[in-house]
Design a protein around this nucleic acid. Structure first.
Length: 217
DNA sequence: ACTGCGATGTCCT
DNA sequence: GGACATCGCAGTT
């Protein structure tokens, strides 16, 4: 397991300016960045490989398309906050709030590649219902979808409104690896969003071309 | 490989 | 009361 000391040498936080850009830019820039989750004093780390942008303007699939409600209010707050919502009666999905406060825009994290804490993430993903069915969960399927990602990182509505810019105190934050090679435009696939019924024509989904951890829908 | 569907709670009309 | 930014299982080709 990675020590906190070493972690701080290899990762660095991202500024408010990083998050305050428009959702489409943020959705691309966030590819290759890391989610670091402090879960019961263990660090769970994943590398983001797939995202989607949502915006209150011109996007009927956005939760804030019809204005502010109790559920979506975090989307209107400061960039770099976490918007977590509950859906289909059993799943959570997490978004990074983009753009300046007052504008509702967010980036859904759809898939990520496990980096650290793999056995714990697998337990979080499988400790459900039936024992006995010992179907093997492959590493690439730990977080190959937005609800899988939240389940693997133990993210629920308790993390709604968390500040992912807080590198030291928050139990979840985003970071970039120091000296990591920059993601090239040629490595990013831009395409239409999935799992929605409205706004399906907008090419607001992005993923890393060579990743085996993207959602397969 | 693909297709259909059940689970299940909260939001919003 | 319907919709829902999903997933995993069961059944079929």
């Amino acid at each position: 397991m990675m020590k906190e000391e070493n972690l701080k040498k290899s990762f660095e936080p991202l500024s408010e300016l990083f998050y305050s850009r428009n959702a489409l830019t943020l959705a691309k820039e966030v590819l290759g960045k890391y989610i670091i989750r402090n879960y019961n004093n263990e660090l769970l780390i994943v590398r983001i490989v797939e995202t989607e942008a949502y915006h209150e303007i011109g996007d009927p699939a956005c939760h804030a398309f019809n204005g502010k409600t109790e559920r979506n209010s975090v989307m209107f707050e400061s960039p770099g906050m976490l918007y977590v919502y509950f859906t289909y009666g059993m799943h959570y999905c997490m978004n990074l709030v983009a753009e300046p406060a007052g504008t509702a825009a967010a980036v859904l994290i759809r898939a990520a590649e496990p980096v650290c804490g793999i056995s714990t993430m697998k337990k979080l993903r499988t400790k459900k219902s039936k024992q006995g069915s010992a179907k093997t969960l492959f590493d690439e399927d730990i977080a190959s979808g937005p609800a899988k990602l939240c389940q693997g990182l133990a993210i629920t509505n308790q993390q709604n409104g968390a500040n992912v810019k807080d590198f030291s105190k928050s139990e979840i934050y985003l970071a970039q690896k120091i000296n990591a090679p920059k993601i090239l435009i040629s490595e990013i696939i831009e395409t239409t969003r999935v799992g929605i019924k409205k706004g399906t024509e907008l090419p607001w989904r992005f993923y890393l071309k060579d990743s085996i951890c993207v959602s397969r829908i």
